[in-house]
Amino acid sequence: MALKLRKFKDQFSSLWIKISLFFVVLLPVVITLSLLYKSMFVLETNGLKELLFSSVWRPLAGQFGFWPFIISSLWVTILGLLITTPICMFSAIFLTQYSSSRLLRFMQPVIDILAGIPSVIYGVWGILIIVPMVGRYLAPLFGIESTGFSILAGGLVLSVMLIPFILNVLIEVFKTVPVELSEASLSLGATKWQTIKFVVVRKSFAGIISAFGLGLSRAFGETIAVLMVVGNVVGLPKSIFDPGYPLPALIANNYGEMLSIPMYDSALMFAALILLVVVMFFNFLSRLAIIRLEKKA
């Protein structure tokens, strides 16, 4: 009797496991297919080329040109990455090559907490600090008038959010560089900095690129924090002090009207599909590179 019960329990848990595994494997497929299915409508009427490269955005007339939103997304993402890159590289090198292990242990929770802060909080902080800073100080510095709600503000907030994310990966990458390599370089008479520049960074090159690849895909999909500071004005931004309107913000701002305008829901799902494809693409490549790296190490 007891054995029977044990067997039954085992079979039951096997079934449960199978269902769960099936679910997990199916999830990405279902997400992609459902978004694709929903965007078919707008794809059929407008065509892929028109959707991606047209700047005409007139939802009521059924014209959906995503070009301004794609450009805004690119601007914000690239700006965020550019600002975050030196901070992440310098900190990661310092924490793994120069500082005591005690400092690294002290900084780890700081990085983790930064990573855990919700994006809406970053958004509030952006509105309170970054937006006025851009509007009152940075823009006038270049003789430009700006409300502060701009591509630059989006990029700045994004760069802060990306720091913990990229930094964690970079620290892991630099930790995998064997000490023997640094020692070899040092014993040839190289200074510590030369060793880092020519050997450590070089050895970690693939890992560094992957870290920023992951960061890029993260930045591209970040929604709320950017939305709150970027201005959300449809149009092609001419400078980083202009407001922008990235794809995720577009989706988030218009879900309310989505069902009241024909084809609008299909268009917004298409925007989500673009996000998904871009993010998956960079994630895929970066993860693959990291796996290769781990195999070698």
């Binding site: 390599l181 370089s185 040092l186 014993s187 040839l188 008479g189 190289a190 200074t191």
Partner: peptide, 20 residues
């Protein structure tokens, strides 16, 4: 310290070719 290290070539247990 680099002057001193330069005077002594080091050969480690496992070869450590530089990544180049």
């Amino acid at each position: 310290v680099t002057e001193i290290r330069k005077k002594m070539g080091l050969l480690s247990q496992r070869p450590a070719p530089l990544p180049m």
